[in-house]
């Protein structure tokens, strides 16, 4: 129901700004190729120098650390984008964990991840089904990286994703999983510069909530490191 409300808000917003076409392109398509990737978390690089150069901070997103009411609570950061704030509330209710990129008290970007931190309380992330991947107890699934449009082109996406990898490692995970669309060159670049390796590709057809996917062997899959046998999940 919350997901439906979130999507309804997006539709109304799209209608309001005349970008219905772009919204529906995201929900109705015959074929898009997702590249499924993994990253060994034992070798994440130090982040502090890059953060200092960019003049930003990294915060873990929590209900107490973010000013979701947009009040004036001191010491708490606030979202610049109302849409992302709503999404963050939705994700937190689902039990996902998030990392935010903060500048001068405002959240300019965020990224989310899911894992088995509380094995019985949280449903498996829905992407895992159509991506045909399973997460073991030491795997985290990262998704939905966002940077405010006026701050793109500053290499912050790479910084934020790198920060998320460190957060996952600090949470006890040993491997990160994720995906990007093959036609999304910026995302492809961020993943490759951060040494993610390809596992497989998935062709997806989508009509709103109906999805049909087909797994293809990856031409680059041979470069992927050895992985532990995943635990089969049920949704």
């Amino acid at each position: 129901m919350n997901s439906l409300k979130c999507n309804l808000k997006r539709i109304l917003k799209a209608v309001g700004v005349g970008s219905v076409y772009y919204y529906f392109k995201e929900w109705v398509f015959l074929k898009k190729t997702a590249v499924v990737v993994q990253r060994d978390l034992s070798s994440v690089s130090p982040l502090e120098p890059a953060l200092e150069r960019a003049g930003v901070e990294i915060h873990r997103i929590s209900p107490s650390g973010v000013d979701f009411q947009q009040g004036n609570s001191s010491g708490r950061v606030r979202y610049r984008s109302q849409e992302r704030r709503d999404k963050a509330l939705f994700y937190l209710r689902k039990g996902y964990r998030g990392v935010a990129l903060v500048k001068e008290g405002e959240i300019h970007g965020d990224i989310w991840y899911w894992g088995h931190w509380d094995s019985h309380a949280h449903a498996v992330h829905p992407d895992l089904r159509w991506l045909s991947i399973s997460c073991g107890s030491q795997d985290a699934y990262g998704f939905d990286l966002y940077i405010c449009p006026d701050n793109r082109g500053k290499d912050w996406a790479r910084l934020l994703q790198d920060a998320a990898l460190r957060q996952m490692r600090d949470d006890g995970f040993r491997r990160a999983l994720g995906y990007y669309w093959l036609n999304n060159l910026p995302a492809l670049w961020v993943h490759r510069t951060l040494k993610w390796s390809e596992i497989q590709r998935v062709d997806l057809a989508r009509f709103f909530f109906l999805r049909r996917s087909r797994v293809k062997p990856s031409s680059l899959a041979s470069t992927a490191p050895e992985r532990e046998a995943p635990r089969t999940m049920t949704g």
């Binding site: 793109r152 082109g153 996406a157 790479r158 910026p186 492809l188 670049w189 961020v190």
Partner: peptide, 26 residues
């Protein structure tokens, strides 16, 4: 060459030198 820089660079190379850079080369 960040995430936006790579997009502009690939576009420039393909247009200027009439080549097609496959994704596995990026």
């Amino acid at each position: 060459v960040d995430s936006l820089g790579i997009t502009r660079l690939v576009d420039y190379l393909e247009r200027t030198f009439s080549i097609k850079i496959p994704d596995e080369d990026i």
